[in-house]
Design a protein around this nucleic acid. Structure first.
Length: 848
RNA sequence: GCCGAAGUGGUGAAAUGGCAAACACGCUACGUUCAGGGCGUAGUGCUCGCAAGGGCUUGUGGGUUCAAGUCCCACCUUCGGCACCA
């Protein structure tokens, strides 16, 4: 008997060998067709868990197979290394964020990713907190600043009291901080840096249609997030102050004749100015209360509307109605114009508001053309215009257009598109992030740092991280003090750092030219590799990261730095790995903060990396959520053990041919013929399964198991191992062929064991080169079909018999077989046959 | 409330409208001088039956079809996204 399968004996050996051989290096500008395979890079938290392992395995299998298919594959890896956990660690462990991050990276790279047997080109490793990298993050922000895409403005912002920093909208979940799900986000007015992503709202929305290689669900999520609404801006004039005009945004300009009141958001700048003296007290009280409510409070307090009138009125420009102005917190200051026209008859929310405060409800659209005395609920459907002056009788759709035209002609409105997407708030009052390369000069205002002075280095010496009192950079006077790049006078550096999502919005552009000290990326290299052919990542990034990355790509394209306008041609959005969390008592996404992680190290020690890879691939198809349960893992270990024994037994007894000649069907014994067919069938099935758009690795593995089981049966039946000395050349050739192909097909998924056994094959004697640079197997279509088939015989759709028959029977022959079958005759029992359906080579259905 | 995805054995899961449950895990029995997650063989959807054999089965209820897990309609449940967005 041959040696036992001990993964620990072979895995590290091959990992070192592969690195020495450099087989995973990508070649810039090579003539081979390029394939850019990318996986979302991790935050270096210090430990990779099974959720990570699943993504990296999937992406690695894709990369490895593409390499075997003859592509010049770029499969890089890096670290999303700025971020708050490093600061928290600094406080709790008294370790500098940089040291903490660096040692985490080292551990995760050398002990976890490399030991998983991944095929990265490590020469291109990118670490976002390294000067060499964030130099170019800053450079991009300068370019954005020069082109008006990076702006400073006063705006209501989300403030997380735990993080002591502002958050982007995308980082607020249900009114809570995405990082501290128990912490309510507060609203504050602050002057902050924004990226003008709304400028790209339309292309970001429209180009989703181009992304046919993306999962539908992700496109829908982005579409919802961008949230385009078309309608009109209508201008109402204040009754008592004819020079004050208030625009509202509405998607229903057709209902303007039914306006009952105007509603301003509590933060609306005109509230103070327009409040009548007798209402002042009540309005101030209301506004003050609203400001203390977080967004969550505003939503979660019972759905009933609140609000107070401010004692002034506006004139409806369409019919001259004078309607009161109210202030109510259901109007949001940062959507539309912060002011809403309230039409109770045709909006459910407005209806509720009007009912509560006794406002008049006037019908202006009728479902059937008739007028109604009083309405019991809002009618939001289509219909005919009523009570609307010259527009009466039109359908409301026609009226919409005509009324917008009328408003434009009369200077009281225009068509307007409104997006739910808001500008991206990027400044953070934190230390461990990329410094914003802008300088405040008393004379010149905000001045960009000179390109030649980049990077603006984040100071590492003398930083005090306490978690209190805002950014630690604020206290670093020596660092803050600088001179103005424009006038040379005294000036101060911006102390806010960037949202880390900026760093990850362009990292895929750096890999193509990761070591370039002179520019972010050379034009020819980035355009050779981009766009990414296959991106793999968790569905949890469906909005945030993917939207930002698309925005960066489009902006950089418009500035002339890249050619492609979408960064990721194909996206595999892998399902989350979940597990019961003792903290919450629920099944949740595996993550450190939820206390339900399963690390990789123990798993590798127990079963080896190959089994770990197979297990995560086998447990479920990649897009599906996977609840972690290790019980099935042993099955993969056993399977690899069977592969090992099968191949090494055959090698030991000399049952494998010493050349690569394929056996010929004709010269094989009858018992051996199906084995050759099985190999061809397996090549066909596995190839199909692990390629797009299927990517179903679980069934690919199942097919390999069937091959191994089939080979095992054959060896048992023929006693080939016991009687190896009697094997004919053709049989040896068959067994050699089968083993070689088994290993080639297994190679992308279980790279170590397949390499180890492959190199031991007798046919490899005197040859060099890794299995991972071999050519992916091809199959003979003719050998994937059987001559004998099993014909299923049905009567009225129910199976009565299964008869083995020759492939390729015509309909009449098949029909005859069915009708002469005894079981069919029994069922017929004298009744007449109405119809016979024949599915060639599959089934005959006799209908009686 | 709106949008999307999904509901199949004890478990993870397979099935271009054509044999439901491939492949595994688990379990049962047997074999192996095998100490414990070793290896091999056979069995294993549910149900009636000693058996031969029969009946039932893809969340629920309808429909289309010779034929439905798969297509259509309604509903239920779970998960995910959006949500006072005017």
């Amino acid at each position: 008997m041959a040696s036992q399968y001990v993964p620990q004996d072979i895995e590290e050996k091959w990992q070192e060998e592969w690195e020495k051989l450099g087989i995973y290096q990508a070649h810039d500008l090579d003539e081979k067709p390029k394939y850019y395979s990318l996986v979302m890079f991790p935050y270096p938290s210090g430990d990779l868990h099974m959720g990570h392992m699943r993504v990296y395995t999937i992406s690695d299998v894709i990369s490895r197979q593409r390499r075997m298919l003859g592509y010049n594959v770029l499969n890089p890896m890096g670290w999303d290394a700025f971020g708050l956990p490093a600061e928290n660690a600094a406080m709790s462990r008294k370790k500098h964020p940089e040291d903490w991050t660096t040692s985490n990276i080292k551990y995760m790279r050398d002990e976890q990713l490399k030991k998983l047997g991944t095929s990265y080109d490590w020469r291109r490793e990118v670490t976002t907190c390294n000067k060499d990298y964030y130099h170019w993050t800053q450079w991009i922000i300068l370019k954005f600043f020069e082109n008006g895409l990076c702006i400073r403005k006063e705006a209501p912002v989300n403030w997380c009291p735990d993080c002591q920093t502002v958050l982007a909208n995308e980082q607020v979940e249900d009114g809570n901080c995405w990082r501290h799900l128990e912490t309510r986000v507060e609203q504050k007015m602050m002057s902050q840096w924004f990226l003008n992503i709304t400028k790209y709202a339309d292309p970001l929305l429209n180009d989703l249609d181009k992304l046919v290689g993306w999962p539908e669900r992700v496109r829908v999520m982005q579409q919802n997030w961008i949230g385009k609404s078309e309608g009109a801006e209508l201008v109402f004039t204040v009754d008592s102050k004819p020079n004050v005009q208030i625009p509202v945004f509405t998607t229903r300009p057709d209902t303007v004749f039914g306006v009952a009141c105007m509603v301003l958001a509590p933060e609306h700048p005109l509230v103070k100015e327009l409040t009548a003296p007798e209402c002042k007290e009540a309005v101030e009280k209301y506004v003050d209360e609203a400001s203390h409510k977080s967004e969550l409070d505003r939503m979660s307090t019972e759905k009933s509307k609140t609000g107070v009138p401010i004692g002034t009125s506006v004139i409806n420009p369409f019919n001259g109605d004078i309607v009161p102005i109210w202030v109510a917190d259901y109007a949001l200051v940062n959507y539309g114009t912060g002011a809403v026209m309230n039409v109770p008859a045709h909006d459910e929310r407005d209806f509720e508001f009007a009912k509560k405060f006794n406002l008049p409800i006037k019908q202006v659209i009728s479902e059937d053309g008739s007028k109604v005395e009083s309405m019991t609920e809002a009618y939001t459907g289509p219909g005919t215009m009523v009570n609307s002056g010259q527009f009466d009788g039109l359908t409301n759709d026609e009226a919409k257009k005509k009324m917008i035209d009328w408003a434009a002609q009369n200077n009281c409105g225009k068509a307007r598109t409104q997006f739910r997407l808001r500008d991206w708030l990027i400044s953070r009052q934190r230390y461990w992030g990329c410094p914003i390369p802008l300088i405040h000069c008393e004379k010149c205002g905000v001045v960009p740092e000179k390109e030649a002075n980049l990077p603006v280095v984040l100071p590492t010496e003398g930083v005090q991280i306490t978690g209190e009192g805002g950014s630690p950079l604020k206290k670093m006077e020596d660092w803050i003090k600088t001179s103005c790049p424009k006038c040379g006078g005294a000036a101060r550096r911006e102390t806010d750092t960037m949202d880390t999502f900026i760093c990850s919005s362009w990292y895929f552009l750096r890999y193509p030219d990761a070591l370039n000290p002179k520019e972010a990326f050379a034009n020819d290299k980035v355009n050779y590799w981009m766009p990414v052919d296959q991106y793999v990542g968790g569905v949890e990034h469906a909005i945030l990261h993917l939207l930002y990355a698309r925005f960066f790509t489009k902006a950089l394209r418009d500035l002339g730095y890249v050619n492609c306008d979408e960064p990721f041609t194909n996206l595999l959005s892998q399902g989350m790995v979940t597990k019961f969390s003792p903290d919450s008592g629920r099944i949740e996404k595996m993550s450190k903060s939820r206390g339900n992680v399963v690390g990789t190290t123990d798993f590798f020690k127990k079963y080896g990396a190959d089994s770990a890879r197979l297990f995560t691939l086998f447990a479920a198809p990649p897009e599906q959520e996977l609840e972690w349960n290790e019980d099935g893992a042993v099955g993969q270990y056993r399977f690899l053990g069977r592969v090992w024994r099968l191949v090494s037994d055959l090698i030991e007894v000399g049952a494998l041919s010493e050349n690569d000649k394929a056996p010929s069907m004709d010269s094989l014994k009858d018992r051996a013929k199906p084995v050759l067919k099985l190999v061809h069938k397996t090549i066909k099935a596995v190839t199909k399964d692990i390629q797009p758009p299927r990517y179903v690795f679980n069934t690919a593995i199942a097919r390999l198991m069937e091959l191994v089981n089939g080979l095992g049966d054959y060896l048992r039946d023929t006693k080939a191992v016991e009687n190896a000395q009697n094997l004919s050349a053709e049989e040896k050739s068959l067994l050699g062929f089968a083993c070689r192909h088994l290993l080639l097909l297994l190679a992308p998924m279980a790279p170590h064991i397949s390499e180890e056994l492959y190199q031991q094959l007798p046919s490899r004697k005197g040859k060099t080169g890794s299995i991972h640079t071999e050519t992916w197997p091809t199959f003979d279509e003719a050998l994937t079909v059987d001559d004998e088939i099993e014909l299923v015989i049905q009567v009225n759709g129910k199976i009565v018999n299964k008869i083995s028959a020759r492939r390729g029977l015509d309909k009449q022959q098949a029909e005859e077989i069915a009708l002469t079958d005894n079981k069919v005759k029994d069922k017929l029992n004298g009744s007449s046959v109405k119809k016979v359906i024949v599915v060639p080579d599959k089934l005959v259905n006799v209908v009686i």
